[in-house]
Write a protein that binds this DNA or RNA. Structure first.
Length: 563
RNA sequence: GCGCCUGUAGCUCAGUAGGAUAGAGCAUCGGACUUCUAAUCCGGUUGUCGCAGGUUCGAUUCCUGCCAGGCGCGCCA
């Protein structure tokens, strides 16, 4: 179920009402309208409202108000579900749900527990999500961290909607950059720069500058006999391989610490070792999508909207990065994945059109490939941006951020904003233990509920099952508001998954936590002289706790019992 | 020059398969601790939804053109 039980019931009632209207000849309904409704902005407009009548007016050639009246007249019969049905000009149908119906939400959450919010909209779909894929030429920086958090959360969302999801990290270990990496290591070795005081001496432009290069150089020296220390071509390759392996392991270690795990680390060089690149290009050449011009091979991407055709093999015989990517994505499809999702830094957006073109060339729907572009992260401390520069190698690493604010805060902050807008990451705020800090605020709602349960336990009160509580005692406005919010959760998940937008979950959790904190302050939950009320309130807040936890799991943030 | 993203309250941002009087947090001002965690809560203030047209019963949302900011436009990866 991709929507809450109340929404589902209303959809079904609306469907029935339209059928009845059609059978009775009141509406033609040649084209069936989509049964959408939203939560009205104002409470006096009811719990839910639909604009189907407005949408139908043109096709039925009748006033929207009339159509709304017809539909409403049939909805009126659903007396178990609706308290009342109002038609408001120009043709809104406002629905007020019977109060008792709402309590079914609590029973449902109790029944489903950890899977509340899950759906089957992507059942049977094999999805490959490729993310991070940072080049193994240095440690992960904060931007990669955002990509990691976003990719992992999206993968969680897809799993929650029933997809069979594989997480993959693609390693560019072919080409000039590993060579440059090796040369950088050698240069640190051949200069007298292994001495600690020389680590800061900059290398010539175009080489990797970070201090980590010196560390790797030292490790490389230890692992090799001095005779192989010549700065020959062979030594550069060897040093590059060595450095790449070290850095990749460190990257994966950082990601593990960040609770990001991959099903597969896919190394680009295997595509060459196994002839996948040549095969993939041969297939495209057979379709006459690849042609030779001026001794280079081109893929005719401009046929499908790219600005120009792209070189796949250079005149010197070497394949381009794009050739690897063609092979890699061909290989993804060949492994049985139907939907490919890539999470990229926004600076790669210029690459998207040729990827879309590639899909056409490979004979797949353009929609089978989706990219989420993740914008930059700007670290802020004391209200001022933290200086970052990749050129000097003095960027802020993901590890430094994790060490400073913790995994939970880092992940939540990375997921707080829509990923295509730049993110200001406030390092001070992320560490605050107060309501200003959204992570803390949400986690604290979970912990506070756990604390209430402990307190109840001490008084000999266990949280009852919903069937053992009189839920109709839940009557105050704050309680109803929370239940309605809980009912929205499945749709929040399915919509976040559909749009690949995990930030919606973060916003939802802040709203829900806000409702809870406000409720907690206004109404006493544990009341010795009102046991029945206490029991029903415990059922309610357990449902809140379940949903907060489920949402945090999607974001990859822990749900603590105590704080 | 071409392309992509962004432009919503003082700040940071939600909201867009078109819907009713546009929201939240922060900041600011003023309140609430003999209390189940005050690690929290309550109230007040805040808008030409970048600008101009168009589509329509209705546009922050869709289309076109401008303006501003960011990013990208290699036989690099």
């Amino acid at each position: 179920m991709s929507e809450g039980i109340i929404s589902a019931a209303v959809t079904s009632a609306l469907h029935k009402a339209l059928c009845k209207a059609q059978t009775d000849g009141q509406l033609r309904l040649a084209v069936w309208p989509s049964l959408v409704f939203d939560i009205p902005k104002r409470a006096e407009w009811g719990d839910l409202s639909t604009t189907v009548a407005l949408g139908l007016a043109k096709r039925e050639k009748r006033a929207p108000r009339e159509i709304a009246d017809v539909i409403a007249s049939h909805l009126q019969w659903e007396t178990d579900l609706f308290d009342h049905v109002n038609v408001v000009p120009p043709g809104y149908i406002n629905l007020t749900i019977k109060r008792d119906q709402w309590f079914r939400v609590l029973t449902e959450i109790e029944r489903q527990g950890i899977v509340y919010g899950d759906s089957t909209v992507r059942a049977g779909q094999k999805v490959l999500i490729e993310f991070v894929s940072a080049n193994p030429t240095g440690p992960l920086h904060v931007g990669h961290g955002r990509g990691a958090a976003v990719g992992d959360a999206i993968a969680n969302l897809l799993t929650r909607t029933g997809a069979d999801v594989a997480r993959e990290y693609y390693v560019n270990d072919v080409g000039t950059q590993v060579e440059t990496l090796g040369k950088s290591v050698l240069m640190r070795m051949t200069q007298p720069s292994l001495e600690p005081e020389c680590k800061d001496v900059p290398l010539p432009e175009g080489f990797y500058q970070g201090k980590y290069i010196s560390d790797i150089a030292m490790a490389f020296v230890k692992s090799r006999s001095p005779t192989t220390m010549k700065s020959s071509e062979g030594a550069a390759i060897e040093a590059g391989q060595f450095a790449k392996d070290v850095l990749l392991q460190e990257i994966l270690e950082d990601l593990r610490e960040f609770n990001v795990h991959f099903d597969k680390v896919f190394e680009e060089h295997t595509l060459y070792d196994n002839g996948v690149v040549a095969d993939a290009l041969n297939v495209l050449r057979a379709k006459e999508y690849v042609y030779t011009l001026e001794e280079a091979d081109w893929l005719a991407t401009s046929r499908w909207g790219d600005d120009k055709d792209r070189v796949v093999r250079r005149a010197n015989g070497q394949y381009t990065y794009f050739a690897s990517d063609i092979a890699y994505h061909t290989h993804k499809f060949n492994r049985g994945f139907q939907q490919l999702i890539n999470i990229w830094g926004a600076d790669h957006h210029g690459y998207v059109p040729r990827m879309k073109a590639m899909m056409h060339a490979l004979g797949h729907l353009e929609d089978s490939f989706q990219v989420s572009l993740v914008q930059l992260v700007r670290l802020v401390r004391g209200g001022k941006p933290v200086a970052m520069s990749t050129r000097s190698g003095e960027f802020v690493t993901l590890r430094e951020v994790i060490d400073e604010v913790g995994v939970d805060a880092a992940r939540f902050f990375f997921l707080m904003r829509r990923c295509d807008t730049p993110l200001d990451f406030d390092l001070d705020l992320a560490q605050k233990k107060s309501n200003e800090n959204p992570v803390f605020y949400v986690q604290y709602a979970h912990a506070r509920i756990a604390s209430l349960f402990r307190m109840a336990q001490e008084q000999g009160i266990n949280v009852p099952s919903s069937s053992d509580a009189n839920l109709t005692l839940l009557g105050v406005q704050e309680e109803l508001a929370m239940v309605k919010k809980l009912e929205e959760y499945p749709e929040v998940i399915s919509e976040s998954a559909r749009c690949l937008e995990p930030h919606r979950v973060a916003y939802y959790l802040q709203d829900l936590a806000g409702l809870f904190h406000s409720y907690y302050y206004k109404h006493r939950i544990l009341q010795a002289d009102a046991l029945a009320l206490t029991l029903s309130r415990l059922v309610l807040i357990r449902a809140v706790q379940t949903v907060v936890r489920n949402g945090l799991i999607v974001l990859g943030v822990s749900a603590p019992e105590t704080m």
